[in-house]
Computed example of a mutant assay.
Amino acid sequence: MKKWSAPLLLIVLLVISACNNTSGSAQTPDTSKEATASTITYQSENGPVQVPANPQRVVVLTAYTGDLLTLNVNMVGVDSWSKQNPLFADKLKDVPEVSDESLEKIIELKPDLIIGSSTSKNLDKLKQIAPTVTYTYGKVDYLTQYIEIGKLLNKEKEAAAWVEDFKKRAEEAGKEIKAKIGENSTVSVIENFDKQLYVFGDNWGRGTEIIYQAMKLKMPDKVKEMALKDGYYALSAEVLPQYAGDYVIFSKNTDGDTSFQNTNTYKNIPAVKNNRVFEANAKQFYFNDAMTLDYQLNFFISKFLGR
Rank of each mutant, 00 (worst) to 15 (best):
Y233L: 04
N154H: 08
G150F: 04
D141M: 08
K151H: 05
D94W: 03
E45R: 05
D67Q: 08
N262M: 09
Y42S: 02
S25Q: 10
K33C: 00
N122M: 04
S185A: 15
K178F: 13
N192G: 00
P131G: 10
N253M: 03
K229S: 15
N184F: 02
I301L: 00
K267Y: 09
A271W: 11
Q84R: 11
K218M: 02
T62H: 11
S188F: 06
K105G: 07
T254L: 15
P48G: 02
K139Q: 13
D221L: 13
N253R: 10
L197A: 06
V76M: 12
V140A: 07
N21Q: 14
I147K: 12
I16Q: 00
N85V: 01
Y137T: 12
S17C: 05
F166R: 08
T186M: 09
L126C: 07
V60P: 05
K105R: 01
K139A: 06
S259D: 04
G47R: 06
Y142I: 10
A18L: 14
A282F: 07
G201L: 14
G47W: 09
L240N: 07
K127G: 05
V248M: 14
K195N: 13
Y286K: 03
F278H: 09
S44N: 05
D257N: 13
G24S: 15
K157L: 04
Q50D: 03
M219E: 14
T39Q: 05
L240C: 02
L240P: 06
L92W: 02
K121D: 14
T208Q: 04
N203F: 10
N85Y: 08
F193N: 00
L143G: 07
M1L: 09
L297Q: 10
S25D: 15
A237L: 04
L13Q: 06
S236W: 09
N288Q: 03
L235P: 05
P86C: 10
M291K: 07
T208V: 06
L92T: 01
V73C: 08
F278L: 02
Y233E: 08
V59R: 10
G231N: 11
R276E: 12
K222Y: 01
A179D: 12
T132S: 11
G231I: 00
G205D: 10
N72Q: 05
I211H: 03
T265Y: 04
T265M: 06
N184L: 04
A35P: 01
G47Q: 00
P96W: 04
D230L: 01
V73S: 06
T186L: 08
I114F: 11
L61C: 09
Q145S: 06
K218T: 07
Q43T: 04
Q296K: 10
N274K: 15
Q213G: 02
E191M: 14
L71W: 12
P52Y: 12
K2E: 00
D294E: 11
N74R: 09
R57N: 09
W204G: 02
P29T: 01
E101K: 14
W81Q: 14
A234T: 14
A271L: 11
G231F: 03
A130D: 00
F88Q: 12
F250L: 07
Y198P: 01
E101H: 11
N288Y: 01
E238D: 14
K3V: 11
V95S: 11
Y243D: 05
V187K: 08
E172C: 01
Y212G: 13
L228E: 15
I114L: 13
E176S: 12
S25T: 10
T70C: 07
